[in-house]
């Protein structure tokens, strides 16, 4: 049987007396797109960092694509990738040079062909030889996505992929991600504050609050259970402790 994209069991992170994430358990199937939602300080970034092996959990375990992240994280890291507007690429390097660096780090075969393929798919041909620091927010988002896709990942962790984008560019990115997931079968875990984006892209949502998983389900299921019109209202109910279980 094929292992899950992510299997988290009792994932916990404590900093002294503070608990950032407590007993988080979930299983992200292959090929699915799930959302990770929560207000500021809910523990989303900490969770993603633990899934990436950037942060060692205080308790619990994570398995990514069948690899235990405590013992075998580099095998998993080669098959996954990550994008966040809060982590930059070297500004003075051109887009092509940046992609070349990551193609080498991820051991991608046919580097130049892969860069050309990504440039065509993400409409980046005209900016390939421009320094990354001179790009607009929308162009930077496309480059960040290209970096995240350079190794044809089986699992993609996206932290607010459309933050600071105008509605048109944001919509373009969301459409692109939908198509990419359908074509590649890549599993996606998406952390976002954009509820419309999550409703559109995600088949399942994990709701976090103060480090705990407080609810989960499909967007439609959550909206129905909370008796609300949309996921944003559900989010506000949870954030403001107004939840009344139907």
């Amino acid at each position: 049987m094929q292992s899950a994209a992510i299997q988290a069991e009792g994932l916990t992170k404590r900093y002294g007396e503070t608990t950032a994430v407590e007993s988080l358990s979930f299983t992200l199937p292959r090929g699915a797109t799930w959302g990770l939602l929560g207000g500021n300080g809910a523990g989303k970034t900490t969770t993603i960092a633990m899934l990436l092996g950037l942060l060692v959990p205080s308790a619990g375990r994570v398995s990514v694509l069948g690899h235990d992240m405590a013992r075998d994280r580099f095998a998993a890291l080669a098959r996954m990738n990550f994008s966040s507007p809060y982590v930059a690429l070297p500004h003075r390097l051109t887009v092509a040079e940046n992609l070349r660096v990551y193609a080498h780090l991820y051991g991608v075969r046919g580097t130049e062909a892969r860069i050309a393929e990504l440039a065509a798919a993400l409409q980046m041909e005209e900016i390939l030889h421009r320094p990354a620091g001179q790009l607009s927010a929308g162009q930077k988002t496309r480059v960040a996505l290209a970096k995240a896709l350079v190794n044809r990942p089986e699992l993609l962790l996206l932290d607010e992929p459309t933050a600071s984008l105008d509605p048109d560019t944001g919509d373009w990115v969301r459409t692109w991600l939908e198509n990419y997931r359908a074509e590649s079968g890549c599993a996606i875990l998406l952390a976002s504050h954009n509820m419309a984006e999550v409703e559109r892209l995600c088949g399942h949502v994990l709701m976090m609050k103060r480090g705990r998983l407080v609810d989960q389900g499909s967007p439609a299921d959550l909206v129905a259970r909370f008796g609300r019109d949309n996921l944003e209202d559900v989010f506000l109910d949870i954030a403001r402790d107004r939840r009344v279980e139907a």
């Binding site: 092996g53 982590v87 780090l105 970096k147």
Partner: peptide
């Protein structure tokens, strides 16, 4: 260059 986040999550 705030690039370590990418470097440390690469293989």
């Amino acid at each position: 260059s705030r690039n370590l986040g990418h470097i440390f999550v690469s293989p």
